[in-house]
Design a binder for these strands. Structure first.
Lengths: 247, 247
DNA sequence: GCCTAGGTCCCGTCG
DNA sequence: CGACGGGGCCTAGGC
């Protein structure tokens, strides 16, 4: 596509606050929270309706470059083609694309006010435990969930049948060293606040890393196998269907 | 755009392993690591050359849905339009778009083998400290950088003029409770391994959170103000240019 | 493969 | 606004 034509289309779409995407050959420089540069290659560039920018290489999951909404964009004619210059005054970041060719361009005003519903998060996991405390053990009595304290928030908080306070840290996946230290922090802080020297700490997760388990034991905490809710629901459902089909 | 036409274009581009983008109105369901649903709205859908999928709403920085490379995609005719069905057998994830309209379509084979150069990361920060240890204090002698141990890796490791071992944890931004606990873990482990009871712990960062500083002091560690390298380089450079221009 | 930790992390939430 | 922690986190590096 001719760069002059691209410039016109881009400006027009920008004025109408349309969602813009184009394929181009470009060289990239980013300056802000770090310094990045990427030599010439073909990429997808996108400018969203709020001004969010992202650049994708032809493979891989993450944008190679991006800018948050709220900046200004200008196109400047150069000998080599066009300079796409984005500057965000709030974050003090620059993103510049030296565009030598534009292959395709597309823009449209999109209408979407929907929010995604998500189930099976760590919050749902702590909810499940609060609703069904025997998942931890038969003596556990939950008191609160996702309780915010000034040193972090505790996933599930409660006590056992002897009145000992219990702190539970949930992890959707393998619990690592960080999870153990998070638990330790909460337990120590509660001991300090309440002036008591016995508080139980439990990690609830589908798995725990060996080093993490070692550290857990060293500090007198324990681990309970709890699977996060909803995980692979559709897959398991299909598995089930398959089984019943084969049986 | 007519859905039949879209189907043809999509299939053809898919066979040629082109980078595909299109605007459409759709309803979305995801099932896998969690369960997600998003009711009808306009979105950008993209399928990369390696099969990576992402879906963007017209605003906001992150894709609302995505799938890693390696799955299979099929389009299935339905009463309401087209069902875009992606399944990744490795990760056991499903992503389904009930497409009722397609507005625009674009595809192209992109050529790009470049890798981004990035400077100003935490690794660069630890490098800077190793090269210039007086950033920490005049008695610090670095021995190693990014040293991997079986309980994690230590950003900068060294000793002071009295021979006391020193562990430094770098953070590019405000150091929080997690950074302090990370430091604590390394210090405790080294004490244990070497059978000594004095090891210094230092956090090097541009800022530290109040709670983190409190915890740091409680455990006898210290904090040194170090700014990460390259931060806002271009901005600062321009600021300087501006000053010299105005002066 | 797992484990560990950083990321231009992003994002929500609550003080 | 900062602080804190989760994320369908992702990705890289080492073992």
């Amino acid at each position: 596509m001719d760069l002059g034509e691209f410039e016109d289309k881009f400006d027009e779409a920008g004025k109408k606050k349309e969602f813009i995407v184009f394929f181009c050959k470009c060289k990239i420089v980013y300056s802000g929270r770090a310094e990045a540069s990427l030599s010439k290659g073909d990429r997808l560039v996108s400018v969203k309706q709020d001004g969010t920018i992202f650049v994708h290489q032809p493979e891989g999951g993450n944008p190679i470059n991006y800018m948050k909404a709220g900046g200004a964009i200008e196109l400047i004619k150069q000998e080599y083609g066009l300079l796409f210059k984005a500057y965000n005054a709030t974050t003090k970041e620059y993103l510049e694309l030296e565009i030598s060719r534009v292959y395709n361009f597309m823009s449209k005003k999109l209408e979407d006010g929907q929010k995604q519903l998500l189930a099976g998060t760590e919050a749902d996991m702590s909810d499940m435990i609060k609703q069904n405390p025997t998942l931890i053990n038969k003596n556990f009595k939950p008191l609160s969930r996702e309780e915010h304290t000034k040193f972090g928030f505790i996933d599930v908080f409660g006590h056992d049948n002897k009145g000992t306070l219990v702190v539970i840290e949930c992890k959707r996946y393998t619990a690592g060293l960080d999870a153990v230290q998070q638990l330790r922090r909460y337990v120590e802080k509660i001991k300090e606040l309440k002036g008591i020297n016995k508080v139980s700490g439990i990690i609830a997760s589908p798995k725990i890393a060996p080093n993490a388990e070692e550290m857990l034991k060293k500090w007198g905490f324990s681990w309970t196998l709890v699977n996060p809710p909803m995980r692979l629901l559709r897959h398991n459902k299909n598995q089930k269907d398959l089984q019943s089909f084969w049986s």
